[in-house]
Design a protein around this nucleic acid. Structure first.
Length: 133
RNA sequence: ACAGCAGGACGGUCUGUCGCUCGCCUCGUGCGGGAGGAAAGUCCGGGCAACACAGAGCACCAUAUUUCCUAACGGGAAGCUAUUCGUGAGGGUAGAGUCGCGUAACAGAAAAGAACCGCUGCGCAAGCAGUAAGGGUGAAAAGGUGAGGUAAGAGCUCACCGGGCUUUACAGCAAUGUAGAGUGCCGUACGUCUUAUGGGUUGUAAGGUUAUGUACACCGGCGCCAUAGGGUUGCUCGCCCGAUGCCGGGGGGUAAACCGCUAGAGCCUUGUGGUGACACAAGGUCGAGAUAAAUGACAGACGCUCUCUUCGCGAGAGUACAUAACCCGGCUUACAGGCCUGCUGUAUUU
């Protein structure tokens, strides 16, 4: 069965790790989400993620909390899409989800975007055997 | 019944699947707790903590009717005075002093010791002098009405009315009110100015402990005594410290963990006192503690409100505002909907 648990070890809390992620990571957009990621080869650690809703776009804390919870739930329910291939390839990943739109969206569309984003991540992190030995 | 005024209290419920966080244990597919009335704005006042602190003057900021409440407040309660809105229940605003100085747009002759027209006297006239009754302007025009008086007029004088000041009596803890007497004293607002009271700074990322660990900041003691410099609230005076030497302690950075961190001016009930804010007594009770930040996501059902309606057990739409970050007391602002108590107006019935 799929494991939908989301313990604290899968959250990205360290300030230095986050700074490294933004300094060295790659990014793409599945609107309204912007995904920043950084791959560690030869590591068995579980993927770590965090969510950022810019205060600039949502002044009220209620709306930021609303979005953070829905994005988190979408990730929690579908993270196996990403975790399973990474574990097979001996990779670990740091992830950041940034919400770009200035309006609220419902869970259905966030879920759809999340699935698409995770599937693209799996493709993008495919190791290129042609370049590296 | 409808419309409204004031005060108070509330602000969804249940089921299933998958999760988060804290605590406890019998350590598992366990049990229990888990946002608000404003948690918000960060506008006041405290607690707590660290640092600072001889003192004087000026400056700066805040407050300013009375009595009371409170740990405290710039908050609250009950009053007082003036003014204003409402038919009304009621609501809003203002409230230390004022000798001097400044400002009062436009219009108007003039915005404070006023002469444009008018009126009166003198004069042939030009004009000079007097005059605030009347006109016109304005948000505001020198208290109002009447009589006397006068060349014409004017608190110039008098009567009554309105206001101010002084004073006496009574009521009230007081602000103040009521009544009497005296005084012709009679624009208003704002600013400046004056007086009284209060004000050290920084906020839990405070601050403390542990771990890792090194080139230097910092602290203590001794020494040196001369200036640069620094601190003391912004300035002035005054005061204090004081680089480079020696000895000892130990810091920066990473920010990892823990404490601070939730039992408190706490909450609930009852009683007593008080018009009230509130106080006191007795009994009961423990109700989040996260840290890139939990308290949720999805599905369904039921409430509640509105609209449509074939008046049905129907259909559709909506279900607010706002997410703890050390903790309390207020203030301000946002809020779908109910509910309770007292009162007002209108209409109707008996």
């Amino acid at each position: 069965m799929n494991n939908h648990c989301l313990p604290k070890s899968e959250k990205l809390c360290s300030r230095t790790a986050i700074n490294r992620l933004f300094a060295e990571g790659s990014a793409f957009i599945v609107y309204p989400l912007r995904i920043v990621y950084r791959i560690d080869e030869n590591s068995t650690a579980a993927p770590q993620f965090f969510i950022n809703i810019p205060k600039r776009n949502f002044k009220r804390a209620v709306k930021r909390v609303y979005l953070r919870r829905r994005i988190r739930e979408a990730y929690r329910l579908h993270k196996e899409i990403l975790a399973e291939p990474l574990a097979r390839r001996n990779q670990s990943i740091h992830l950041a989800f940034l919400y770009l739109d200035k309006n609220l969206t419902d869970f259905k569309s966030i879920e759809k975007n999340m699935i698409e984003a995770l599937e693209r991540l799996v493709q993008r992190t495919e190791p290129q055997q042609t370049t590296e030995s």
